[in-house]
């Protein structure tokens, strides 16, 4: 179980760094959705199922869709 926890946290850190490094904003949004999904799994392992439910619905679903809606109004690339 500890191995699984450490694996999830390493993936979380990799996702957080990749969001900041990616120049293409749509790819950054998809990585951010993966970050939220991993975070929901971690909340579940930390015995907080209500926060996990909220994170899976809001963080991985609605926030990503709202950001895509905003992105369709502006440019796709950074700088």
């Amino acid at each position: 179980m500890i191995v699984f926890n450490v694996l999830l946290i390493v993936l979380l850190i990799v996702c957080a760094i990749a969001v900041e490094r990616t120049k293409d904003l749509l790819s950054a949004l998809i990585i951010f959705g993966a970050y939220s999904a991993i975070m929901a799994l971690l909340w579940l392992l930390l015995n907080a199922p209500d926060i996990a439910m909220t994170e899976a619905a809001v963080g991985a679903g609605v926030t990503t869709i709202l950001f895509v809606g905003v992105l369709s109004k502006t440019r796709r690339n950074e700088d």
Partner: peptide
């Protein structure tokens, strides 16, 4: 279901409401 069992089980108003909003989205 999540909204109506908000005082008994995990979840509640915010979690169930965001699931409802996600279905309409």
């Amino acid at each position: 279901f999540v909204i109506m069992h908000g005082h008994l089980s995990p979840g509640g108003g915010f979690a169930g409401g965001s699931i409802l909003g996600a279905s309409l989205i």
